[in-house]
């Protein structure tokens, strides 16, 4: 049961909203928010991860400097061990179908979520049985 969440969005209001929603469903969840994807990326590669932990990462698309896609491109280059432990969901206010499609096509993305984040979505994330073996 993942109790670690990372939220990456340059919009602080969204980060607030997601935090509140997650907190409502999982009171003990550890939530980290970032306004700059670069900083989030640095955090991921520097902080040592416990092999049992699973982190859910909510990633916005439209951000200056690094967009969500840029973040994903860089994420792809990371070690398999790290990638396995971080489950990325793209969360966006965009209702554009090509964005949805592109998100679901990416092999490092679990799913695409439309803002605002709902409690139902958070619950289903927590109920996922993440396997620790290598994904095919």
């Amino acid at each position: 049961m993942p109790l670690r969440f990372i939220i990456i969005d340059n919009d602080p209001v969204n980060n607030l909203l997601c935090s509140l929603t997650i907190r409502d469903v999982a009171k003990e969840a550890e939530i980290q928010t970032f306004n700059f994807p670069v900083k989030a990326f640095e955090h991921i590669i520097t902080v040592p991860l416990n092999t049992d932990d699973v982190t859910v990462l909510l990633l916005d698309i439209n951000m200056p400097i690094w967009s969500g896609w840029d973040f994903l491109d860089n994420f792809e280059m990371l070690d398999e061990k790290i990638k396995r432990q971080i489950k990325i969901y793209i969360i966006s206010s965009s209702i554009d179908t090509s964005d949805k499609h592109r998100a679901r096509e990416n092999k490092n993305v679990v799913d695409y979520i439309e803002k605002p984040l709902s409690e139902k979505t958070v619950s289903s994330m927590l109920e996922q049985k993440w396997t620790q073996t290598l994904q095919v």
Partner: peptide
Amino acid sequence: SHNLRAPVANIIGL
């Protein structure tokens, strides 16, 4: 439309 939807999504959630 994207820039309109972003704050609206926030308003809905909030």
